[in-house]
Design a protein around this nucleic acid. Sequence first.
DNA 1: CCGTTGACGGCGA
DNA 2: ATCGCCGCCAACG
Length: 118
Amino acid sequence: MWFIGVDGTMRTYDVIYNVVRRIPYGQVATYGQIADLAGMYGKARLVGYALYRVVVDSDVPWHRVVNAQGRVSESPFRNGSDALQRVLLEAEGIQFRADGTLSLREYLWRPDVLENNP
DNA sequence: CCGTTGACGGCGA
DNA sequence: ATCGCCGCCAACG
């Protein structure tokens, strides 16, 4: 499998990426939520570190991860991927408020509810 | 083996 | 509400 290293070990960040891959189209998850689901409760920042390493054209839907305020985390180090993130989310039907936040109540992924269903 | 590097979140003033 | 502070850590050179 692509997420297992040649030595057979799955790296820490790969565990995080695998959770991110489960976020459904049109929904979002928070950094803290991903950490929790990855068995790294309280380590939201680690998720941020991991996503920083992801390349834009990755198979990991990195754009579906926002912060606990329902806002795209911006940083000059992201070199524009933060602006792209909003564009990609809007392309999935997610609407942003005037203050730059999105409705977590409406778009937050709830894994426990039912994975796939219309 | 270090030193550097960064997409968070919660809590207090 | 809106700041600042701080815990926390894998990957890379």
